[in-house]
Computed example of a mutant assay.
Amino acid sequence: MLLFILKRLALTVLVVAITSIIAFLLVHLSGDPAAAMAGEGASASDIAAVRQLYGFDRPLFVQYLDWIGRVLQGDFGRSHYLRMDVRTILAEHIPVTATLGILALSFALLLSIPLGVLAALRPNTLVDRIALWIAVAGQALPSFLFALGLMYLFGVYLRWLPISGGSTWVHFLLPSIALGYYATPAIMRLTRSGMMDVMQSDHVRTARAYGLSPWRVVVRHGLRHAIIPVVSLAAVQLGFMLGGSIVIETIFSLKGLGYLAWESIQRADIEVIQAILLVIAVAYAVLTLLADLLNAALDPRIRIN
């Protein structure tokens, strides 16, 4: 197990290193950062002054080494627009996105896994058709349209829940449902197909032959094995929620990373954009690592192979 962890950890570090290079190059190769920071009406001398002030006149390799060296020391630079340390800005926005992502994934898992299990145990029944309808609706309905529908129904018409802001946990209910529903179809389909395969396997038939209760057969011998690919998918979905929640955050006026990324792109705030890309990449890599370790704990065959 220790060797397995070390291999996965080394792979995670390599992925983060490569992603940091890509994030740095994407910002610098998408255009002249000095011209973007100087503004549309800036003269050539102003652009040159900005380029020299921020070190954009140096080779990209030197700029990257300087940037990644500061990042490894916990220094993400300073926002030229907000006149604040990027680390302070991230500390204000990351908790919002993290809370939204965790609640959204929790909603998706609580809805999709039971439906997937029931659909697998009762194929071609009403439960299976309802699960299929939910999956189709989740894929076909745009997240912003579903979010607006939730806002009108529960916030405007029924007046049960707030529709903007993030001061309390109640404010996160509607955006979490809107964001989590988008991940429900994939998790539910994977749970259903995995359960149908596992329930026809030899070890499940043996467990039934020993007279174990149906609940124990389904949960301990069925779901435990079927849930392994779901863990990996859930980690990817959580990473997507952390990085792709800009629409939901904008609709519900949540000041998270997605909203900050959109604002930073509009302002050409290079340091903030680079920091956000790196934070999201690290989150993806760490979540994938945790999913691999959890899968290895659930199924010893994974770490043996």
Rank of each mutant, 00 (worst) to 15 (best):
I18Y: 05
H80C: 09
R159S: 15
G166M: 09
I227V: 11
A140M: 04
S45I: 09
M151L: 14
S106Y: 03
M84W: 11
T191Q: 14
I94M: 11
A275F: 08
L60P: 00
L53G: 08
A235V: 05
R83S: 13
A209S: 12
A178P: 11
V198D: 03
Y54G: 01
L190D: 01
V62I: 13
V27T: 15
L25T: 11
R189D: 09
G77V: 07
S106H: 02
R208N: 04
Y157I: 07
Q266V: 05
S264T: 01
L254A: 04
I130W: 08
L153C: 10
L6W: 03
L257N: 01
L121K: 09
G138S: 13
V231K: 04
W67S: 07
L158T: 01
L212S: 05
A10C: 00
I228E: 02
G138M: 15
I68N: 00
M188I: 09
L26F: 06
V236H: 08
Q237T: 10
L25C: 13
A178E: 09
P175Q: 01
Y152Q: 15
Y284W: 14
V272W: 07
H93K: 12
P95T: 07
V86G: 13
L14H: 12
F107G: 00
I304G: 03
V198W: 04
M84C: 10
L11W: 06
S176N: 02
Y81N: 10
L145I: 08
V96Y: 05
S20G: 14
F240S: 07
Y182C: 01
R8N: 01
I248M: 06
S253P: 01
L105A: 04
F240G: 07
S30N: 15
P162S: 10
P123I: 08
I22L: 11
Q63W: 05
L105K: 02
M195A: 08
